[in-house]
């Protein structure tokens, strides 16, 4: 076989493999969309779920997912920001920093089920917080932190050093320079990172089944008192999320229309995550344009 023949065959093999992957992609997306879309209706989105009879919706699960996401971001963003600032602005190039980075890497490589079990052990059981949104949000924070730290650090790092020099040369403190100059300049990147991480958090289930729990008590959406047990804002109530719901109806096998509920819920999940992805891109671009004066 001449080299040219080999070349042609190899190229064809590669093209063939790519074709298969593309077919798988189309099949996946097509399956989710085709089997999911017909089940999405106003009724589906706005009625509570029912375990033992058909026709249940996903209202509470959808809300729980969003609420959990917000709580998670509220807890994880400041922590991640502070840590990223430490790593990008204060940390020296020494063994201590290396150790810290290793620790964060270890955290990011832990399977989410292990992180969830840790949350279960410490918060649900030791701290008697029970299956609750708060336990879930803390577990998701652990799972979210390393990624968020990495993406924020990257955005801070991308701000040129000349901006830091400009700040401190005016007699500003490092902290003021970071807060007032570096952070705003890094904001588009940081926001993009947050939104992308939000997508991951939104779809996560393994870390939640033993922290936020697998039950969705009926919520009272007119009760705005977060300390009341029936209030939708109560962070101490158990909260099954959309992703957990998909898992549960499929593994328990007691809901008659489990397949159509899961299909609909999967499609909703994917749509929300798609929105996050597009949103991240759009916001990043928009802010970048605004800051650079359209240049």
């Amino acid at each position: 076989m001449t080299p040219n023949q080999t070349d042609r065959i190899a190229t064809q093999v590669i093209n063939f493999l790519v074709l298969i992957v593309v077919l798988i992609l189309f099949f996946l997306l097509g399956d989710i969309i085709l089997s999911g879309f017909p089940h999405i209706s106003w009724h589906f989105l706005t009625s509570p779920s029912s375990s033992f009879s058909a026709g249940g919706g996903i209202r509470d699960q959808l809300f729980n997912s969003l609420y959990l996401l917000v709580l998670t971001l509220i807890i994880s963003f400041p922590l991640a920001l502070g840590s990223a600032i430490y790593l990008s602005e204060y940390a020296g190039n020494n063994w201590r920093t290396g150790l810290i980075r290793t620790a964060i890497e270890v955290l990011s490589s832990l399977p989410s089920v292990v992180v969830g079990l840790f949350g279960y052990l410490l918060f649900v059981i030791e701290f008697h917080m029970g299956f609750s949104i708060l336990s879930g949000a803390i577990a998701l924070t652990f799972f979210n932190l390393p990624l968020l730290v990495r993406s924020i650090e990257g955005s801070l790092h991308a701000v040129p050093d000349s901006q830091r020099e400009a700040g401190i040369s005016l007699g500003l403190s490092n902290w003021r320079t970071i807060r007032g100059i570096i952070l705003p300049a890094a904001l588009p990147g940081i926001l993009t990172g947050i939104i992308l991480s939000a997508g991951r958090v939104f779809g996560e289930a393994a870390a939640l089944i033993y922290t936020a729990g697998q039950s969705a008590p009926i919520l009272n959406y007119s009760n705005w008192n977060p300390t009341d047990s029936s209030s939708f804002l109560n962070p101490m109530r158990p909260a099954e999320t959309l992703a957990v719901h998909i898992w549960k109806v499929n593994t328990e096998g007691v809901t008659p229309d489990a397949v159509s509920i899961s299909a609909g819920a999967s499609a909703v999940l994917i749509i929300v995550i798609l929105l996050f992805n597009f949103g991240a891109r759009a916001i990043g671009n928009h802010m970048y344009k605004k800051m650079t004066g359209g240049k």
Partner: peptide, 11 residues
């Protein structure tokens, strides 16, 4: 005060 080689206005 100091001014640098490359202009570095804030964004």
């Amino acid at each position: 005060g100091m001014v640098f080689q490359k202009p570095n206005p804030f964004a």
